[in-house]
């Protein structure tokens, strides 16, 4: 018989992992298509949470409307982010520029710049302290299953992450938008020459990925009950680690690794103080890079 304590830790870990997964899905989608890291993804998450806060304090709509509001803000943020930080560096379409590391790494910095500006702007607007969300909206009513206690939010987050994953799989493999996204991710020039509007495809990817990031943000806000301008940083790092562990451009891989990461962190708190649990992610990142440079699932896999 397993000690119920470990079951509880496992449940907490899975739930934590799901929140990383929510974040990692959008992150990996954008990486898969553009082959660049979008450092502003964490701020999209924060923007989603703050959009929820503003909506709730202004009109107090039903929770579903709050989530739709966050999705809309995420879509808009993704669109603007792409225009501001990524599009300008796609001006040069010749072979040499497309392959140049400088071109790719410049968007690494430009997205980082956008993330800093957004974070600081939110601090100016809302202050840097924790802001609590109204109690009625929170999704942390306890639910007891046998020896394990979960909260409603765990189920909601699980449901949303699963729906996102399935929805994305549908989008990528069953729709023409998905076909275009995969084509652009495989070979942007080739796609262009058979009539795919690569620009529009890239924007679509950003919008979809950012909507997921923003949804994650508001869900986490409602789950923990508090939000603050720098809240996107740590989940952003965790999502990044999950993406690297999963092999950089595999969405299912990133989700599985996000779960592994979550469980490992929650189990680690048994042995070390919870302040150290973030170390687990960094340790995983380093170990992955040393021993599994192609990600845990290695070999060939479908990109995106």
């Amino acid at each position: 018989m397993i000690d119920p304590y470990y079951l509880q830790q496992l449940a907490i870990g899975l739930s934590l992992g799901m929140t990383y997964a929510l974040m990692a899905i959008g992150f990996t989608l954008i990486f898969g298509v553009l082959n660049v890291v979008n450092f502003a993804h964490g701020e999209i998450y924060t923007l989603g949470a703050f959009a929820g806060l503003v909506l709730i304090s202004a009109v107090a709509p039903p929770i579903v409307a709050v989530i739709f509001g966050a999705l809309a803000v995420g879509a808009l943020a993704g669109f603007s982010l792409e225009r501001l930080a990524f599009k300008p560096f796609r001006r040069f379409t010749d072979e040499a520029s497309l392959k140049s590391r400088a071109m790719r790494e410049s968007t690494l910095l430009s997205s980082l710049a956008v993330s800093i500006v957004v974070r600081e702007a939110l601090e100016i607007l809302f202050g840097s302290e924790m802001r609590s969300l109204p109690f009625d909206y929170l999704i942390n009513t306890p639910v007891r299953i046998g020896p394990v206690i979960l909260v409603t939010g765990d189920f909601i987050i699980f449901g949303v992450a699963a729906a996102m994953l399935i929805g994305l799989q549908y989008l990528l493999t069953r729709t023409r938008i998905g076909l275009a996204i995969r084509a652009v991710s495989n070979n942007p020039l080739g796609a262009k020459y058979v009539g795919i509007d690569t620009d529009r495809t890239i924007i679509t990817t950003f919008v979809v990925g950012s909507m997921m990031g923003a949804a994650a943000g508001i869900l986490m806000g409602l789950y923990y009950g508090a939000i603050f301008p720098a809240m996107g940083f740590v989940p952003g790092i965790k999502a990044f680690v999950a993406m690297v562990m999963g092999g950089l451009s595999s969405i299912p891989g990133a989700v599985v690794c996000a779960l592994i990461l979550g469980v490992a962190e929650s189990m680690a708190t048994t042995f070390v103080s919870s302040g150290w649990s973030d170390m687990v992610a960094y340790a995983f990142l380093i170990l992955t890079l040393i021993f599994f440079p192609n990600g845990l699932f290695g070999a060939r896999r479908e990109r995106v």
Partner: peptide, 8 residues
């Protein structure tokens, strides 16, 4: 130099 989509 071919530009097929290798992973599709």
């Amino acid at each position: 130099n071919l530009r097929v989509f290798p992973n599709m």
